[in-house]
Structure formats: C-alpha cells, structure tokens
Design a protein around this nucleic acid. Structure first.
Lengths: 126, 126
DNA sequence: CTGGATCCTCGTAGATACTG
DNA sequence: CAGTATCTACGAGGATCCAG
C-alpha cells in the first residue's frame, strides 16, 4: 500500500502531526542516516564496507547512526562469530518503506534543485 | 504530476543524489521550516500570526526561517505600506510541491510511529 | 575487523533588549 | 507590527586512542 501524497482532505495532518513529523525528521535529518539507509537499500553490508561507501563518515558516527537505526527497527544487526569478527547490517521492511519515502524526497530534490539554486543566487544578488 | 515513490529501476538515485538529499534535508530538517510550511499550506499568513501558530518559536527563528524559505523560492514575502506595517507570507508553487512531499513524510510517520516506539522500548530494555 | 570511551570544537538556537 | 543585534548555552559531530 502506498502512502497518501496529496490528501486534499487532511490539510490538518500537518497540524496534528507536528511532533510526528519532527520525530521523522530527527530520525533521518541527521547527517548520516539517509546515506546509510541508501547504501543498505539493495543489499546487506558489513561495517567497514558501509564506512568506505559513506566516506567521509567517521567510525564513531557510523556506529552511532547504525545503533540509532537499529533501535528504531529500521536495520538489523547480525553478528557472525567468525574470526575476524563480522557484523552484517540490512534494512528491515520498515527501513525499506522509509527508503521509499526518502526516494520521494530525492525525486523532489532532483526536480527542484536547479530552480532552488537560481532562487538563491537571485536572492543573494541583493 | 506526482513524484516517483518506488522507482524500482533507479536504485542508485540515492547514490547519485546524496548531496541533493542532504540539501533538502538541510532545508526542511531544521526545527521550524516544516512547521511554517504547514501553517502556510492553506492560506496567506502575517508574521505574528505565524508566530502565534508556531509557538513556541522565537521571533528571531521565525524571521530566520522565513528568510531561508524565501531565499529558496518556497515562500513569497509581500510588504504592505500600511500603518502599522503589514507583511504577508505565502507558499509559492514550489513551496506547495514541497508541502506535498512533507505530507508523504507525515503519512509515513503516522503509519510507523507506534511500531518505532515499540522497537525503541524493546531495544532499550537491554 | 568492529567498535567503545574521551576530549574538544564549532555552529545553531534561545533569551533579551532594542529599532523603524 | 515586524523585525534586528548581541550574548550565551548546549549539543552534534570530528579526532584520537583503546579494546574485544
């Protein structure tokens, strides 16, 4: 099932959902969550794999980001008792659904990036 | 026209669009932009009107938020030379399109809020 | 390899007071 | 009414070292 995009009737969904929206934005609004979610979009990844793909993220922030995502049930963390140790991360179904919303965001960004940049330069020219 | 939500083919849209997504998130990821955009969703508003509706925002932050949104071509600022002075803010078409994306986000939040809270308490119970 | 612990810096937002 | 100016506090995030 898809999520309502326009929802003409629920103009007050924003009004009611202020805290809700803030929660989501605080979840994905930090510096690295979206990046990590995107990297996990298609497949399972290991820690240092994510680290390289998400450069220039620091170890500390990748660790913290993954822990936060795991806490919210957006990614799974699987420890393999091998030597050397190996930990796999992957998106949960909920994480996948968030990824779709993020893709909608990316689509909007793509459509409007040029226009926004134009507006900025025009605005700054004063 | 709607924006692609799923986009099975463009799995790398996230990969390419990292900076793009970050731009959007920096735009709406701050504490007040989404709130203001929602309040402007249906109609034109004046400064102190927005101020009251967006409590507990401070004058400074409302001013800064509106300036940022205006800079990106998301809201218009109309000064009326009356006495006392009066300034009207309203969404541009681009701002309306962003509002729709924000509503999609709100929808996701609504659908998943309970599950996320459950995950958190379960995670914290360890 | 996969992290945890510590220290430190730098930006952002709040409080407050003032202006056209 | 519609802002600006200044000062301060707080917290996210980077650097670095250490551990299982």
């Amino acid at each position: 099932m898809a999520y309502p995009i326009v929802g003409a009737a629920d103009a007050d969904l924003c009004e009611q959902g202020r805290d809700l929206i803030r929660d989501v934005l605080e979840r994905i609004g930090d510096k690295w969550s979206v990046v990590v979610i995107c990297q996990l979009g298609d497949t399972t990844r290991r820690f240092n794999e994510l680290r390289r793909m998400s450069e220039p993220i620091t170890q500390r922030m990748l660790s913290a980001t993954l822990r936060g995502l795991e806490r919210d049930g957006l990614v799974t963390r699987t420890v393999h008792d091998t030597k050397p140790p190996r930990v796999d991360y992957a998106l949960t179904p909920r994480g996948v659904s968030l990824l779709e919303v993020v893709r909608a965001l990316a689509g909007w960004a793509e459509h409007n990036a040029a226009g926004i940049l134009d507006s900025r330069t025009a605005f700054d020219a004063r």
